[in-house]
Design a protein around this nucleic acid. Sequence first.
DNA 1: GATTTATGAATGAAGG
DNA 2: CCTTCATTCATAAATC
Lengths: 226, 226
Amino acid sequence: MEWVHQPPQQQLQQPKDHHNDQNNDTGNGGNGGGVVEVLYGKVMTDEQLEILQTQISDYATICEQLVEMHKSITDKQELAFSRMGNLHCDPLVASVGNKITARQRWTPTPVQLEILEHIFYQCTGSPSKQKIKYIAAELFQHGPISETNVDHWFQNRRARSKRKRLNISPNNAESKVEKDAESPREKKTKPRNLHSQRDSAPRAEDHCFKNRKMSFKTHFMDPRTN
Amino acid sequence: MEWVHQPPQQQLQQPKDHHNDQNNDTGNGGNGGGVVEVLYGKVMTDEQLEILQTQISDYATICEQLVEMHKSITDKQELAFSRMGNLHCDPLVASVGNKITARQRWTPTPVQLEILEHIFYQCTGSPSKQKIKYIAAELFQHGPISETNVDHWFQNRRARSKRKRLNISPNNAESKVEKDAESPREKKTKPRNLHSQRDSAPRAEDHCFKNRKMSFKTHFMDPRTN
DNA sequence: GATTTATGAATGAAGG
DNA sequence: CCTTCATTCATAAATC
């Protein structure tokens, strides 16, 4: 398989993952190894196959989007993204380099956030797909964003707003009104909360299941596992 | 594999150097000021665009080859997914002492997941009730699980896999055109196991793509560009 | 620059 | 199936 060396993209290394399908081999290259697994006779596992497939699809999509973006931008050169600090993220282009490190999470620009919040107040229900599409298109003028991002945003916003209502203010009816979105970037401070919902009580059995990262050396022998 | 867009002629030639930063968005200004001037102009040069396309084609070719290779090899040997060993974590007996903080959500163990994925790839349709029962029984050897879990898992897996695939095709012109008539729920999420990250090239507008982590966790293709 | 917090995204579970 | 919700995971941003 010499072609292995020729493909366009350079390797992307990523430290952590969700479901890593581990090849059946636990022994070989943990996180770093980029080894073609011919070891077992299989060129790649089914999972890998799907991943590859997904990646190609993604590539196609990205390409489309880039072209779109490129087109629209060149047409009217006024689309400036306000936020360019240290964010990097360039999928393909970046990956072409030799070293990759990237960001993976979308972060709304102040303007986008403001708009989103505004919409949120007005419409309590969840925006329809169509609406999401529209919103995304609107927001795209203020920075990179996808429909998925919008969808997730509303989902999270709704969920968290609700939870806050229920947990933090059991006595009060609720006030959906919350802090207005101002410039988050400049100075966004948050009043310290008493509790973090994130600290999970150490439950022994969780360890076993919790870890989705199926890194090769999974915690098969996690001592905690009572 | 329909996702392969077109059989590229060029045999895996690799484009070199997409560091488009050079004249385009050059080094992103660190954190302070975005010195990215190119952003205002073009997202990428025509040359870069072409390179990108070439890469996609290359990917498609590689994929085809891999699939072929994989197919021929696997036909010969069927490997039963049996490789797990010790791994255990006790079932969800969360009740330790008096306070019961039972876990509410089942989380597949790495082994279970692996098996499920295997089955998923082999049988495209939904497993029958009977089959689910059998699968659950099998998986139970590797950790707590119920038929419901299995059922849900397949349902979610199928749905998400499908959705992902569907989103890829629709041509999107989200720039300013908001004339979408129909709203196919668009949601491109989760390439299942990667949380990759990429960066390096400082581009501000890529957030939108962040979820298309195209890195292949196993760099079995390790394509390096230059 | 190590820790903590806020929040985008992934995913098990339900409802229809 | 499809959509939505609830919970959890992972990480950018904020703090210390």
